[in-house]
């Protein structure tokens, strides 16, 4: 039984549900990290949905919080599609970059990875290990190299070799560090001297609380996010903060990570996510 199973069965008919029942639902939503604003919005939407089934009402209310934007990869109209993977420290950027590259190769695309995390100790090695495992080439520079120059090299290579996808892993950075956020903007601008960046994906860890919303806002301001990768959904966290981000900022969740292996990765499916929440 899902998170809200007990409550839903109490709310069998919306018309009979008591205020206390709805409060209980709201609590469950808060427990899933939707945050106070979205949780109360979902409850009031659910209460207003005209249906006999409470389950249906909650389901519809949750779905209505999601964006209607496409969750497909936005491919470059011509030339290589460049994907920049960004986020705060430890959310799963490197793992997700590798997984995404793997996903694309399994769709018979030619993919190149770039190790633009030149900061954290052994981060380049981490991506190189993934490259070996998955048999995908990884562009990298020397230790402490300028991340923009690594990204630039990689961009030139995908253009020259007509590789269809470039996935760039970047260093984790706190959105509160202005210099690091500026650096990210620079990475993007330098790449765009060669080829347009088609996707900038923010990696959000499902355990993240309300701070995720601020992270998304700040990253969106400095690099124009096009989507979210929600990781670590294999744990006990529900990842409701991604829902809050999508609902408030309209940045669609595009992928989910559900484990430490390359295959633990899939396009985000709103219906099944919402069902798993319930």
């Amino acid at each position: 039984m899902g998170l809200f199973g007990k409550i839903i069965s109490k709310l069998t008919r919306t018309s009979n549900a008591s205020a206390a029942d709805w409060d209980e639902l709201e609590s469950a939503l808060l427990g899933a990290d939707l945050g106070p604003t979205l949780a109360s919005k979902v409850v009031s939407t659910a209460r207003s949905v005209k249906t006999d089934s409470a389950e249906d009402a909650v389901y519809q209310a949750l779905l209505s919080a999601l964006s209607t934007k496409s969750r497909e990869i936005s491919r470059a109209p011509s030339g290589p599609t460049v994907i920049l993977v960004v986020g705060v420290n430890g959310t799963g950027k490197t793992t997700s970059s590798a997984k995404l590259a793997h996903y694309l190769t399994s769709q018979d695309e030619k993919v190149l990875l770039a190790a633009a995390d030149t900061f954290r100790a052994a981060a380049v090695d981490q991506l190189l290990t993934w490259g070996e495992r998955l048999d995908i080439d990884v562009v990298h520079g020397k230790e402490n190299a300028d991340p923009a120059s690594v990204a630039f090299d990689a961009a030139q290579q995908v253009v020259a070799k007509e590789i269809s996808f470039l996935v760039i892993d970047t260093a984790g950075r706190m959105h509160t560090k202005n210099d690091l956020m500026d650096q990210l903007g620079k990475v993007r601008r330098v790449i765009e001297k060669v080829v347009r960046v088609a996707e900038v994906l923010l990696v959000i860890d499902a355990t993240t609380g309300q701070n995720g919303l601020i992270q998304a806002k700040v990253f969106a301001e400095s690099v124009d996010l096009t989507g979210i990768i929600l990781t670590k959904l294999d744990g006990s966290a529900r990842g409701g903060i991604a829902l809050a981000i999508e609902s408030e900022l309209g940045i669609p969740i595009k992928w989910v990570g559900t484990g430490e292996n390359a295959k633990d990765f899939a396009p985000f499916d709103p219906q099944s996510y919402v069902r798993s929440l319930m």
Partner: peptide, 15 residues
């Protein structure tokens, strides 16, 4: 534990 963790802190720390 990451200071950014949300409501899951309770379940995870108990586990």
């Amino acid at each position: 534990v990451d200071a950014m963790i949300g409501q899951d802190a309770v379940r995870t720390s108990q586990a």
